[in-house]
Each structure stands twice: as C-alpha cells, then as structure tokens.
C-alpha cells in the first residue's frame, strides 16, 4: 500500500469522541478489522505485534515473565519506527510502574533481578524503590493519585486514572500523526481503550472473580462452609 493510501483507511474510520462518556465503540471490531485489511501485509503484521505487546488478553494465567520480557524486546525491535518505539516504551514503562507500586503496596522489597520488567525505566525504578513516586513524579504525574487509590483500595478510581493517562497520551500523539501508520496504530489503541471501558460489566466481573477463586481453591473448595460457596 502506498504511503498516501493511509488517507483512505483513516478517513473511513469513525471519529472517537471521548472515553468515559462512550456507551459503545464507534465501530465494531469486525468492521474495524475489515477496514484495517486495507493495510499491506507488513503493516498488518506490525499492528498485530503491537496489539499483542500491549494487550495481555491472549496470554494464559501461567506466563513465564522472563520469556515475555524477551519476546517484547524482540517484537519492539521489529517495528522500525521511532515514534512507535517511544509509544511502546511509554506503555510498558507505565506497566512497570504500576507493577512496582503494587509490589510496594504489598510490602515487597525492590526486585533482585536486574531485568525484572519491561520498558526503559525498570533499572531506574529499582534504584529509586524507596521513593514514593519511584523518582518519576514529574514524568508520570498520576503516580501520587495511583498511590492514594492503592492505599484506599479504590479499584475503579485507579482504573479510571490509568485509562485517562493512556487516553491523554494517545490524544497528544494523535496531534503529531495524521495520515501515517502511526496514526492507524493510535486509532486502534484508542479504540481498544473505548472497547475495554464499555465492556466493563459488574455481573460478568462477579462470575469471573468467583471462577478465579474456585480455581485457586481447587479441592479445598469443598472444605469451605456451605454459606461461603456461593
């Protein structure tokens, strides 16, 4: 596909207005995939690589972190775009920060393994483990809010802060990219955020939570009092 053919694809995609006020995605995933088939094979593969790197839905529960980190580094090296690499790094850094804050909140010490996570700041975070903001308060201004939510156990507020941070970062990048592959990636990532937010369902979450508890308990489930089984 010629470089200028991104114009066709991007103008064929409906505008995504906002994140939290969306009730449904502006286009179904089926239709989105049909439109994305306008991309050439190399771009489609790059997009799949990025989505696999940033979304963990396809991963099982027993993931080897070391293998995952190595795979992420290998995938990142194949993208061939500085803007995309920066975007991936930012998202993976965000994941690393959240993981570090959760570990700290659980009372854990700094990781002993040098390469303990993704992104570009894992070593810096390990060295600044004792700082409440991991020494990254200016680069990631939402860290104090995340700390507060973790302290108070406000899961929904925490999720909203993180989604908002990603949304704003993608909006900022979207202003620099209008009709190129980066713009397509930004659109798909924004679509994914809206899809994720609009898919949140209390009842489904309750069932999923119950299943996870049952799987974790295994045979011990039968030893629970009858009132706790439902």
């Amino acid at each position: 596909m010629a470089e200028n053919a991104y114009y066709t694809l991007l103008t064929s995609l409906p505008h995504i207005d906002s994140l939290f006020s969306s009730k449904i995605t502006p286009i179904s995933r089926f239709q989105l995939d049909k439109r994305l088939s306008m991309l050439n094979t190399a771009d489609q593969q790059r997009l799949v690589t990025i989505e696999n790197l940033l979304h963990w839905d396809h991963l099982g529960d027993d993931v080897d972190e070391t293998v995952l980190i190595r795979q992420a580094e290998r995938a990142r090296a194949t993208l061939g775009s500085q803007a995309l690499n920066d975007l991936i790094d930012w998202r993976l850094d965000m994941r690393t920060i959240i993981a570090a804050l959760r570990r700290k909140h659980a009372g854990q010490q700094a990781p002993t393994v040098p390469k303990w996570s993704y992104g570009t700041r894992y070593e810096y975070i390990r060295n600044h483990w004792n700082s409440p903001t991991l020494g990254l308060g200016s680069a990631f201004p939402w860290i104090p809010k995340v700390n507060e939510c973790l302290r108070n156990g406000e899961c929904v507020a925490l999720e909203k802060i993180l989604l908002q941070a990603v949304w704003e970062h993608l909006n900022h990048l979207a202003m620099k990219h209008h009709h190129d592959f980066e713009a397509v990636v930004i659109y798909v990532l924004r679509w994914n955020l809206v899809a994720r937010w609009t898919a949140y369902d209390t009842d489904k979450a309750r069932v999923r939570f119950r299943n996870l508890i049952e799987n974790s308990l295994g045979d011990f489930k039968d030893q629970l009092p009858a009132s706790n089984r439902t």
Binding site: N4, L10, T11, S12, R35
Partner: peptide, 17 residues
C-alpha cells in the same frame, strides 16, 4: 496528480463511513 490522489483517497475512505 499527487494532490488529487490524496484527496480522492480521503473521499473514498469517507464514503465508507
């Protein structure tokens, strides 16, 4: 040629939406 191609592609994309 380039200008009409770019604008035409955008028009084709918009017609899908």
């Amino acid at each position: 040629a380039i200008g009409c191609s770019v604008a035409g592609q955008a028009a084709c994309g918009a017609m899908l939406d």
